[in-house]
Design a protein around this nucleic acid. Structure first.
Length: 814
RNA sequence: GCCGAAAUGGCGGAAUUGGUAGACGCGCACGACUCAAAAUCGUGUGGCAGCAAUGUCAUGGGGGUUCGAUUCCCUCUUUCGGCACCA
């Protein structure tokens, strides 16, 4: 009990002191020091307070920020709130409260918890996406997108619960059923704003070369963009005026195209459904399935014949047009030409419905292993059954075919992307209003920039509408407005933006949080950009990171950003996940949630922070284990005792102690640089173990020891620092002190151990001085002379000897 | 299904470019202190054989490259993460 009081007293004391010395963690705009921008993803302030996952990633950022500050950098380490979103909206509806108030309460709780955990954020730069002075610029970005023709309206499907009569997020759909009432969810097309991110697909992929993201993240982004090269081909439809456009990566196989498949959402399918009951039934059936179910290779194919035929342009054959849900409306053109001999899905479909299969590519060399198991072959080869293309290599045929199609005007080379345009509308209240006006005369008109922000009206209580529209549509004073163009009566857009809109660009606002006339000042962006280290979760490596890079690149193209900053983030570090003590993902329903505040009250903040960093590699998945946490507590207690005891004696360091301290400083510096927090802490523990056995230590080396742990255990370090600097007049924080410098001469020891192995197996160890260890001749001689080695060499022939300077000798015998 | 990551003692994990596998911590065992317990401190701790010196096996399974593989290659198995309206 007494002990608990002790760390509490210390924490309270330093929280207050840090609060009174605000400049300690402040990023300075006009400093001449080199800058470092350390960014952690800002949280969604949920009602349940700071989660241990937040504590983990923020501690990781905080350690880095404190480390860089001590190294002499002008560090920008900001925090804010990504506060729009569904959970708050749902909670507000349920409790009949204003989301604005709920958000304020939640952010207050988060902020005080963050302060307790000693995160060294520069609170003077706090931003909140729900603040009108912030979302003014989120809206401004949308207007720019619209002006550059990158935002358009389109019918897009949403999940619709016919019983609750509301649109559902994917997360609210469980096994095809509504999370709240269990009713079967269907799809419903509504007109939505869509942002043309696909225009930037190549740019986004190319831009990765200007970043230092780890390969995993780069791969994730490249795969998400998913470029495939091929051609667009327009097929004539028999007895109808329209043509059917498809995208294919294999125009070379056109002679083998024996049927066509269109998605159930395709306009042609929808038209036909009006007069054909079978088609109508099929369309209704597929509406229930998710994209994943539809494209699953193992699932049985379903489909219905449309009654129409397309004309294959290379041989004028009439080929049937089918409707099937394995073709997605959202990819390519929503229609495909099927080549069942050379595509697995087409093959499965053809077999199920008895459609013609024509082979047009012959494998070049068929070894036993490569022989296709089925009559479906997707590899390279030589053209057959393809008119005058016969005998040609497939890649050559591909080029030739595209050339011909172009000549007769029914096709051309084209790329397709896995990346889809970005649905930007949400039928919800708690988001940024989309600043667009629908005028009967002028059409869709953006709000004038000087009228931004379009403020989200506050309402006492609200509920979802029963027609799928945003709750804003019921607020007449909001909906009815004048057209910014002609001044006539018009109606406002009532959809709001997705959560991503506010989090796309927040990192720039931190650089210039109060600017009323610009999103960010040019010079400040130039000063602070790019983000040097961006710490976040794997789950944001595709969507958030891609959207954010897209918005940045778009604004960059407007010419308002510094030329030398084509990418917003330099380095991306993805933090790991903390599982519950039961090795399961923490969740309320499993009852395995660990709250950092509770643990901090029990053991102290430093223990929690250091334990989080010690559990495992920063990027890994780890399970919470309170027993291991005790090890960290013991270490900190012993550390404290050691420093207090040693600070009372006044002596010098022995050379042994010098070596321990300098190796520690050297190792920890390298580890912190690489986010090797767990090994940095292990080195601190190891050093303490050795120091406790060694003689006394100088005041200078003791000071280094305290500074090395300061980023990890900020309270204890501050307390010890104030203790050993008692008589120095006005106190200066350990967190404002400098990072210890390594004295190189103590890193190299005089003696080294050289290992002697026979056939790669360790047989002896030789302790020699450093110079000798690098002398091949001397070491080989020494090795052969060793009694242990001699015994192993009896009756054997030495075949080879390998020498690794300073490390080992390997004698190969036969 | 597609894409990605991972697999090392009883447990969490550590191992420059391939060069002493198991750092550091937990747990466990024994000992000190104590009337006793907790806390604390000390010693030991991968399996097998041996009093020991030491030997031998061992980094998910199988194969390969190499003087030498946790590390590189092939293959299989298992686990985890992401998949566009959760944030």
């Amino acid at each position: 009990m007494e002990e608990i009081k002790k760390f509490k007293t210390i924490e309270d004391k330093w929280i207050k002191w840090w609060e009174d010395h605000k400049d300690l963690y402040r990023a300075v705009d006009d400093s001449s020091k080199e800058k470092k921008y350390v960014l952690v993803e800002f949280p969604y302030p949920s009602g349940s307070g700071l989660h241990v996952g937040h504590a983990f990633s923020f501690t990781g950022g905080d350690v880095q920020a404190r480390f860089k500050r001590m190294q002499g950098y002008n560090v920008l380490f900001p925090m804010g709130w990504d506060a729009f979103g569904l959970p708050t909206e749902n909670y507000a509806i349920k409790m009949k409260r204003k989301p604005q108030e709920v958000t304020k309460e939640n952010t207050d709780v988060f902020k005080s918890q963050m302060k307790q955990l000693a995160f060294s954020f520069d609170w003077s730069r706090e931003v909140n996406t729900t603040d009108p002075t912030y979302y003014k610029w989120t809206q401004w970005i949308f207007v720019q997108l619209f002006k550059k023709n990158l935002a358009y309206k389109q019918e897009m499907p949403i999940n619709w619960c016919p019983s609750c009569k509301i649109g559902l997020a994917n997360e609210e759909v469980l096994n095809g059923k509504c999370e709240r009432c269990g009713t079967e969810v269907s799809r419903r097309n509504i007109s939505q704003w869509v942002v043309k991110i696909t225009d930037y697909a190549d740019r986004l992929a190319m831009g990765l070369k200007d970043t230092n993201f780890i390969d995993k993240v780069k791969t994730a982004q490249v795969n998400w963009i998913g470029k495939s090269e091929g051609a667009k081909i327009r097929f004539a439809v028999k007895d109808r005026k329209e043509t059917l456009e498809v995208f294919t990566t294999r125009p070379d196989t056109l002679y083998g195209a024996t049927f066509m498949v269109i998605s159930p959402e395709h306009k042609l399918a929808v038209d036909l459904a009006e007069s054909n009951k079978d088609i109508k039934d099929y369309l209704n059936e597929t509406r229930k399935k998710s994209d994943m179910e539809r494209t699953d290779l193992n699932k049985d194919k379903t489909g219905v014949f449309s009654g129409l035929y397309a004309i294959n342009p290379v041989n004028d054959k009439a080929i049937p047009i089918w409707i099937s849900d394995f073709v997605l409306a959202s990819y390519g053109t929503g229609a495909i030409m099927s080549v069942p001999a050379h595509d697995e899905r087409d093959n499965a479909f053809a077999k199920k419905f008895g459609l013609e299969i024509i082979q047009v590519i012959k494998p070049n060399e068929v070894s036993e292993a490569d022989k296709p198991e089925t009559d479906c072959y997707v590899g390279p080869g030589t053209m057959i059954n393809s008119g005058d293309l016969d005998g040609m290599e497939w890649s050559e045929a591909k080029a030739k075919m595209i050339e011909r199609l172009k000549k007769i005007g029914i096709g051309e080379a084209s790329n397709s992307y896995h990346l889809r345009d970005w649905i930007f509308s949400r039928q919800h209240y708690w988001g940024e209003p989309i600043p667009m006006v629908d005028c009967p005369k002028c059409g869709w008109v953006p709000e004038k920039e000087e009228n931004l922000p379009i403020v989200l009206p506050e309402v006492e209580a609200y509920e979802p509408t029963d027609d799928g529209l945003s709750p804003l549509s019921r607020i007449e004073s909001f909906v009815n407005c004048k057209c910014p163009e002609c001044g006539g009566d018009a109606k406002r857009e009532t959809d709001t933006m997705p959560n991503w809109a506010g989090s796309d660009w927040y990192f720039m606002r931190y650089m210039d949080p109060d600017n009323a006339t610009k999103l960010v000042d040019f010079d400040l962006l130039k000063k602070w950009g790019p983000v040097d280290i961006y710490i976040g979760g794997d789950e944001h490596n595709t969507l958030h990171l891609l959207y954010s890079r897209f918005i940045y690149q778009f604004l960059y193209d407007l010419g308002i950003f510094p030329k030398e900053l084509p990418e917003p983030y330099y380095r991306r570090v993805s933090h790991g996940v903390i599982l519950g003590p039961d090795n399961q993902r923490m969740s309320k329903s499993k009852g395995n949630v660990i709250v950092p505040e509770t643990v901090a009250d029990m053991y102290g903040v430093d223990v929690v922070r250091m334990y989080l960093m010690f559990m495992g590699p920063f990027e890994g998945t780890m399970a919470w284990n309170e027993k291991t946490l005790m090890g960290v507590k013991r270490f900190l207690d012993r550390f404290e005792k050691y420093v207090i005891k040693q600070s009372q004696s006044n002596s010098d360091s022995s050379s042994v102690v010098k070596v321990i301290i300098n190796k520690l400083v050297d190792g920890v510096t390298k580890d912190l640089e690489n986010f090797g927090y767990n090994t940095a802490i292990a080195k601190c523990m190891g050093a303490l173990n050795e120091l406790e056995k060694s003689e006394s230590i100088s005041a200078d080396d003791l000071s280094k020891l305290v500074r090395v742990v300061a980023p990890l255990a900020p309270y204890m370090a501050e307390e010890l620092w104030s203790n050993i600097n008692r008589d120095t007049g006005e106190y200066s924080s350990v967190h404002a002190s400098s990072w210890p410098v390594v004295e190189e001469q103590y890193l190299v020891s005089d003696e080294v151990t050289v290992v002697v192995a026979i056939n790669g197996k360790l047989r002896d160890q030789l302790v020699v001085d450093r110079e000798k260890a690098n002398d091949e001749k001397a070491m080989l001689e020494l090795a052969r002379g060793s009694e242990k080695i001699k015994a192993w060499l009896v009756g054997k022939q030495i075949v080879k000897e390998i020498f690794v300077p300073g490390r080992m000798v390997n004698i190969v015998v036969a």
